[in-house]
Amino acid sequence: MLKIWGRASSVNVQKVLWAADELGLTYRRIDAGGKFGGLDTPAYRALNPNGLVPSIEDADGTVVWESNAILRYLAARYGSGRLWPEDPVRRAEADRWMDWALTVIGEPMRILFWGFVRDPVHADGNAMAQAEDRLGEYWARFDAWLAGRGAFVAGDALSMGDIPVGCQMQRWSAFPIARPRLPALEAWHRRLQERPGYRKWVMVEME
């Protein structure tokens, strides 16, 4: 059976849990990180030398860490033609937005998360205001990509590319900030909210 290490409140763990549900996989989640600890034990460091979550161990003993690498592995192994687009052009589109969720919106999203949720006492108001403005611009770029292209990131079917961006979108929609009107983005988010795995793992209160 597939094992998934990580607390369910982690956005990176949520990616993996949602993907596993989309693929209909049987798995066991093991609480780790945050209040559960366990990341500095020799056993966990042997699994993931970085001491971060998520990590997975597949039924055949394959170990993968780094959330986007896990998504690509699960999609390629269990979701070819579904989460893993067979067309290399579509797959590149999915790949691109997966990486965008880390390299472009990841840092300003982190600033707002820490300021509103994790450590509001020490929040840097200027940094948060800048992050809010930057995110409005960045999400507008994604909205422009979605407009007229299909229901999801890489066409008419959900792919691995929707998952990291969709997890960040849920958090952005919950922050008490001003957001620009982005119709294509909002319609895409509504489509995600119809998916059971998204509702179960991603549409939860932030901790």
Rank of each mutant, 00 (worst) to 15 (best):
S173G: 11
G197S: 11
Y73M: 00
L146K: 03
L23D: 10
E194T: 14
V64C: 05
R110P: 11
V117S: 04
A184M: 05
D162H: 15
A178Q: 07
L146N: 02
P49R: 07
R134L: 12
N68S: 09
G6A: 05
V16K: 02
M206H: 05
R195A: 06
R118A: 05
E86Y: 08
P108S: 01
Y27R: 13
K3I: 07
R179P: 05
R134I: 15
L74Q: 11
G24W: 12
A76L: 05
A151E: 09
R191M: 04
V121G: 09
A123H: 04
I111R: 00
H122A: 10
R72H: 06
E137C: 15
V165E: 02
R171C: 06
F113H: 07
N126E: 15
G51L: 03
A20M: 05
G33W: 00
W65A: 02
D31E: 12
A187C: 09
A76D: 13
P42K: 08
G51F: 05
N126D: 12
M206Y: 14
G81L: 12
T26N: 15
R191G: 00
G150N: 14
T62Y: 14
Q193K: 14
G166K: 11
W172R: 08
A184W: 03
G81H: 15
A92P: 06
A151R: 11
P120F: 04
R141T: 10
P108L: 00
V165F: 12
E207R: 15
G161S: 13
L102S: 04
D133T: 13
L192G: 12
D60Q: 03
A184L: 13
S55H: 05
R90K: 14
I111L: 01
E137R: 14
A59M: 04
T62K: 10
P88T: 07
A94W: 01
G24N: 11
R7N: 07
K15H: 01
N50W: 15
P180R: 14
A147Y: 10
G136K: 00
R82L: 10
H189N: 15
L39C: 07
W18T: 07
K35N: 14
G115F: 03
A127T: 13
R195M: 09
D119W: 15
W145L: 08
S10Y: 00
P42Y: 08
A174D: 03
V53Y: 00
R110F: 05
D95I: 15
F113A: 10
D21T: 06
R149S: 04
V64P: 00
L112E: 06
R179K: 10
D60E: 12
A129Q: 07
D143N: 11
R45L: 08
E107F: 09
D40I: 07
N50T: 08
V89G: 04
M1R: 14
L192E: 02
R118C: 04
A157L: 10
Q14E: 14
E107D: 14
E57P: 03
D156F: 15
A32T: 01
R171F: 05
R149Q: 10
L112I: 06
G38L: 09
I111F: 01
T62F: 09
L52R: 06
D124A: 01
K35M: 12
W139M: 02
G33D: 02
P180S: 11
L2V: 04
R96M: 06
